[in-house]
Design a protein around this nucleic acid. Structure first.
Lengths: 153, 153
DNA sequence: CTATTTTAAGATAAAAGACTCTTTAATTAA
DNA sequence: TTAATTAAAGAGTCTTTTATCTTAAAATAG
C-alpha cells in the first residue's frame, strides 16, 4: 500500500474538516461516526496532525479540532508527511539503506523520477481541490457515503 | 512502502539470476547467502515466481532455479504482479473499496494518472536494463555488496 | 538401488501495523 | 466549585507481514 491506513484516515479527516465552511471546532466523536473510523484511533491520528501544526485543538465543552490554515494552503503532502513521514519520498525501491545519488541501486534513477511525480501530485493537490470536486460531483469519503450526507447535520 | 519486502526480495533475486550469463540452474542456498536473504524465506518467494511462470525449477543434484524467459523479456512489473498482486495498480489511494471510474473518490482521477506512471516505469524496465546498468557502474543489490563480488564464484 | 541434493509445503514464532480500551489531564459552562 | 466534555496518553489486543524451523517429496549422480 502506498499510504498507511493511519495516513488515509488522516486524509479523509482533513477533507472532512476542509469541507465544513464554518470555522468552528469540530468534536471528534461525531466526526468519527461520520467517517466510520474508531473514535480512539481517529483521536490519535488527529493528535499527530495537531502536533505537526496542521490542526488546532480545543479542550472542554464545544471543543474539538479545526484546520490551522486555510484548506487551499494545505496540500495532501502535508498530511502524508505528518503521519507517514518522509520515507515514501526518500526510501529505496529495492529497500537498500543509504540508497541515493552517492551510492545508488540499479533502480535508483528511474525510481527517483517516478517518486517525484508522486510527490508533485501530492504537493499540487490541496484540500480545497478535492473538496470542491467532491461537492460538485457528490463523491464519497467513506465506503457508502457521499458528500451531501457527510455534511448534513 | 511501495512494494512488500517479499516483492523486493523477489526483484533482487530476479536481477541476480538475470546477471548470470550462464543458463544453468542456480541452487537457492548459495543464492540466499549472496543476497543476504534467509534461505527458507527466499525459497518461498522463488516458489511464487516459479508458480507464476517467471522461473523454472529443477530438483535434485545440480538443481535450482533459472529464468523461464530471456531477461530482456521480463519487466519489473512481472515480478511485482507475481508477488504483490495487482493491488498497487488498482487500489484506491484513499482506501475506498470499489473506487473506480463508476464510483470514484475525490482523489481517483489524479491518483490514476500517478499510478499509471508507476506502472509504466515498472513495465518499461526490464531485468536486462538494470543488470546492464548495475554491471557498468558496479552498483549493488545488497546492503554492502556490489555486482563484481555478487558474480564472483 | 541408495545416498545426496534439491524443491516444496506446513507449522510455528517473532515483529510490525492496525485497532481498542482505560485512565488522566485540561477546559469551560453553569 | 462542580459537573460535563473534550484532548491526550498509555496499555493492551488483534491481525498481517515477515521470518524461521521442520518435514516431506522429487530427482539424479554414482
Amino acid at each position: 500500500m502506498l499510504l498507511s491506513k493511519s495516513c488515509v484516515y488522516g486524509l479523509r479527516a482533513a477533507l472532512y474538516l476542509a469541507s465544513k465552511e464554518k470555522e468552528e471546532f469540530t468534536p471528534i466523536k461525531p466526526m468519527s461516526e461520520r467517517l466510520e473510523i474508531s473514535f480512539h484511533f481517529l483521536t490519535k491520528i488527529l493528535q499527530q496532525l495537531t502536533a505537526n501544526g496542521l490542526l488546532e485543538s480545543f479542550k472542554g465543552p464545544n471543543g474539538g479540532v479545526r484546520l490551522a490554515k486555510s484548506p487551499d494552503k494545505l496540500a495532501l503532502i502535508d498530511v502524508v508527511l505528518a503521519i507517514d513521514g518522509p520515507k515514501l519520498l526518500t526510501e529505496c525501491a529495492l529497500g537498500l539503506p543509504g540508497c541515493g545519488l552517492k551510492n545508488p541501486c540499479p533502480l535508483h534513477d528511474k525510481w527517483a523520477i517516478t517518486r517525484d511525480s508522486i510527490r508533485d501530485m501530492l504537493a499540487n493537490t490541496t484540500l480545497t481541490d478535492l473538496v470542491e470536486k467532491g461537492k460538485k460531483e457528490n463523491l464519497r469519503l467513506t465506503e457508502d457515503g457521499d458528500f451531501e450526507q457527510l455534511l448534513r447535520d
